[in-house]
Amino acid sequence: MDAAIFDLLLRWLHFLAGMIWVGHNYSSVVQRPTYRPLCAEDLSNDDSPRFQALLHREHGVFRWASVVTWSAGLLMLWQRGTLGGALSLSGALAPIGIGMYIGTLMMLNAWFVLWPHQQKVLGLVPATISERLRCSRISHLSSRTNTMLSLPLLFFMAAGAHGGAYLFK
């Protein structure tokens, strides 16, 4: 396949998967802008409305979308020969490099902080009610960390290809 077409397809995939990933995160912020802690009653009864709502939101789509987004982004940089420059934050590649580091942090957060705690909250991993309540707070903070990180992520990703790179030469 022609390298330019491959690059365009990767960029398309990167955008689509990124919108699915961050879109899920933003959706949770819009639907629940203010934190409301779970209580023991929510978790001790599997039929409670809040627990059922939590359970139905767990489908893994955004977690896997994060892997697709990250992989497509990395592959794009690699096939352009700019991965090394982005990793070392060299010159005009510094903005996309910063975006890449933030995106990597977000993916690791989703998989290795949010997910293990959310598994306990949902009862997918056995835990006491008090432990599940503690984990629900960490899940919230982890999710909002990614919301917060998405702002500089999008700024530096956009700056890398839409004029920002020129400013940083």
Binding site: V29, V30, P33, T34, Y35, I98, S150, F168
Partner: peptide, 30 residues
């Protein structure tokens, strides 16, 4: 309350981090 407990607090922190990283890029990295 923790800034993450409201949507506004979360967005403001994100904007602040963007500015800080921009300053880091401009004055330190490049």
């Amino acid at each position: 309350r923790h800034p993450y407990d409201t949507a506004t607090g979360t967005v403001l922190l994100g904007a602040l981090l963007t500015v800080l990283l921009l300053a880091l890029l401009h004055f330190v990295i490049l």
